[in-house]
Design a protein around this nucleic acid. Structure first.
Length: 675
DNA sequence: ACTACGCCCCTTTTT
DNA sequence: GGGGCGTAGT
């Protein structure tokens, strides 16, 4: 049993009685083992049914790893009955269980949607010296607002934050009212909506009961997540976290939540895990020297268990940024440690490209978490948009993205086409194609702008006989959208491909079969051809046919990978939503780990290189001016260095020759007494 | 009025 | 390397 391997303080925490329990666990003190043991204890000793246990973690990978460790002691079916994952993934699954239909959209897509609303607004009648928030920034601000507060409206929250945009509050509020309506119309849900929906559903529906709710990385909980924890009907709460590792302030993580635990939950018990099993004494001493500069919520105690001889952390100084990357690559090359046990950690992802390039030069394999280019490639996005439109035939964003590949159809026309189809199909473009309502002019504009007294747009029709030479079928030709005056033959051909795709795909329920159908469809062939051509254009403008063929094969290969990925899912809807929830957690390949500090959270490596430790970059001064703080940057530093088990190297460069910037070392190096 | 194309900007961290 | 913006061209 996992309990037998615990030390006294871990055992004490893992076997505590039901109630509100907070476990303060410093880096490397075995918090995962403690959570795993707690779950095993509940299942075995307390005879709690697995479906009455809810485990909330920061990443889905963390949850999977914990389950893996528990599964050694229990039957496989037990693990399947346990509910676990991120707040978002769990909310999605539970809402699904309650029969809600959810089409989760990427923030990027929703930002585009918000921009179209923002662009329609007029601000120039307001006499103000303050520049209006741009839509993308406004989206982030609103997201932070949703994560930060549960009882204020947006204006009051802005006011409380000292915003000087008072003159614009009404317009901002109005933008988000329309945004909400549009999300509703298109059937979209964003990350925050998922949590808010879950919380509101829990208030009305009490069929979901958990005996024990466990929360990992509790220090990074924000007010929205905390309110969701409170909304769960539970007998016992088991939260594990470390004040000094709170690094998600930008997402509303509120350090007060862990700080005020005992005040908020009557009769709460607090446990401390102080014995560090991960790092050598010298690494720990360095980490603690730095973090002690932060105001203490409680006295940090730490006990070193690895007391044997060890190497001191080293400071490496270079004249130039790339010299640094190259030198570190060489050090890695010479190291006896296996690549998988080495991590290069940085504050900003911009450090990753240079590092990756120099590792490549040395032929050292490496893997980057998140931002894998696979899901960011246009062909994969296109497949996912084609899937989206089948799963949710109200999905305007997916439709517009697909029509970016149509010649002669720009953003304005594609939006008009969508709206017309939507109108013909009562909100559903599939119906708009195949069971259209009897509307002669679906392009009639709704009166939208009251101030301008905009009338219905008188729209001139083009003759459908333009398309007489095309192999369009009767049903398609009779659809009113073909009457659009600005629709070219190329545009109509593309719509026909899309029409055929919709007709055949709607019946395919299995995601793997659907992806396979997409890859072989005419519309995807059109997209493949477009992308392959684009990628094969030579400098003189001509097309390299060999390169084009190669590009085409690469695209198809990616499609096959996506097809295999889809194989594990019951429905296309689940597949799509899983990709939105967890694509960044899929890391490809093996080798040296290239990680941002945030991505390194919860991981450990024998050898760690923390690079680019220059003032401005780490700490990131830009972010500090935008609501961050030096304390948070210091916690980031603490997280980064405590990933190391045996060897720690800290490095910086004095000059960036590409950007022509001279750098001063990070103040944390001084605090660490390395300078 | 709209689309296509070329040029310049920058590029935080995550579900 | 992609997104935003201005310009040429339909």
């Amino acid at each position: 049993m996992p309990l037998s391997r615990l030390n006294q303080e871990q055992l004490h925490a893992a076997t505590t009685k039901a109630g509100s329990n907070l476990i303060i666990a410093s880096a490397g003190t075995g918090k995962t083992s403690t959570i795993v043991a707690r779950i095993a204890y509940l299942l075995k000793e307390k005879r709690v049914k697995p479906e009455h246990i809810l485990l909330l973690t920061f990443t889905n990978k963390a949850a999977a790893e914990m389950l893996e460790r528990i599964s050694i002691f229990f039957d496989k079916t037990v693990m399947e009955r346990l509910e676990s994952g991120t707040f978002h993934a769990v909310s999605y699954r539970l809402l699904k269980k309650l029969g809600k239909k959810i089409s989760l959209k990427q923030p990027k897509d929703l930002k585009i949607l918000l921009k179209t609303i923002h662009d329609k607004r007029r601000f120039d009648h307001i006499d103000s010296s303050i520049n209006v928030y741009q839509s993308s920034y406004l989206y982030d601000l609103f997201s932070l607002y949703q994560n930060s507060t549960i009882d204020l409206n947006f204006s009051d929250w802005l006011e409380e934050k000292g915003s000087e945009h008072g003159d614009y509050y009404d317009i901002y509020e109005d933008i988000f009212i329309e945004f909400k309506e549009l999300k509703n119309e298109y059937g979209y849900v964003d990350f925050n909506d998922l949590l808010i929906m879950m919380r509101e559903t829990l208030k009305e529906d009490n069929s979901l009961k958990f005996n024990e709710v466990l929360v990992d990385e509790y220090q990074d909980t924000n007010n929205l997540q905390s309110s969701l924890i409170d909304a769960f009907d539970k007998k016992s709460l088991f939260c594990v976290g470390d004040y000094d590792q709170s690094i998600y302030g930008f997402n509303g993580a509120n350090i007060e939540i862990i700080g005020s635990f005992a005040d908020r939950y009557k009769g709460a018990s607090i446990f401390n895990l102080n014995k560090n099993y991960r790092s050598t004494s010298k690494i720990l001493a360095l980490a603690n020297r730095v973090i002690e500069h932060n105001p203490r919520l409680y006295k940090k105690k730490y006990e070193v268990t690895r007391t044997q001889e060890c190497e001191a952390p080293q400071l490496l100084i270079y004249d130039e940024l790339f010299t640094q990357y190259q030198a570190i690559s060489s050090l890695i090359k010479l190291s006896n440690t296996t690549y998988e046990n080495i991590a290069v950690i940085f504050r900003n992802n911009s450090s990753a490209d240079g590092m990756e390039a120099t590792l490549r030069e040395e032929n050292i394999p490496c893997k980057r978490k998140g931002g894998i280019s696979f899901f960011d490639s246009r062909e994969i996005k296109a497949i996912m948009d084609l899937l989206s439109v089948v799963v949710n035939s109200k999905d305007m964003m997916a439709f517009i993205h697909i029509f970016e590949y149509a010649k002669g159809v720009g953003s304005a026309l594609s939006k008009e086409l969508f709206e017309a189809l939507s109108k013909l199909g009562a909100g559903d473009i599939y119906r708009g194609f195949f069971h259209p309502k009897d509307i002669s002019n679906p392009f009639k504009k709704r009166v939208q702008n009251y101030q301008l007294g905009l009338f219905d747009d008188c729209h001139e029709f083009g003759s459908v006989s333009r398309f007489a030479n095309e192999n369009f079928n009767e049903n398609f030709l009779s659809n009113p959208i073909l009457k659009h005056a600005r629709l070219s033959v190329d545009g109509a051909k593309f719509i026909f491909k899309f029409y055929n795709y919709m007709r055949n795909s709607i019946r395919i329920k299995n995601p793997k079969i659907l992806v396979n159908y997409i890859i072989n469809s005419e519309i995807f062939n059109h997209i493949t051809d477009f992308l392959a051509t684009q990628r094969a254009i030579k400098k003189d403008g001509s097309i390299d046919e060999v390169a084009k063929q190669e590009a085409r094969e690469r695209i198809l290969k990616k499609g096959d990978i996506l097809k295999e990925l889809a194989g594990g899912y019951k429905s296309s809807e689940r597949f799509l939503n899983a990709l939105t929830l967890g694509k960044s957690e899929m890391s490809a390949g093996d080798g040296v780990n290239l990680l941002s500090v945030h991505a390194s959270k919860g991981l450990e490596f024998s050898q760690v290189y923390v690079i680019d430790l220059m003032d401005g970059r780490f700490p990131n001064r830009k972010l500090m001016n935008k609501g961050g703080s030096l304390e948070e940057e210091r916690r980031l530093f603490y997280v980064a260095v405590t990933r190391a088990k045996d060897n720690l190297s800290l490095s910086y460069a004095r000059f960036d020759k590409i950007k022509k910037i001279e750098y001063v070392h990070s103040p944390f190096l001084k605090e660490a007494k390395l300078l």
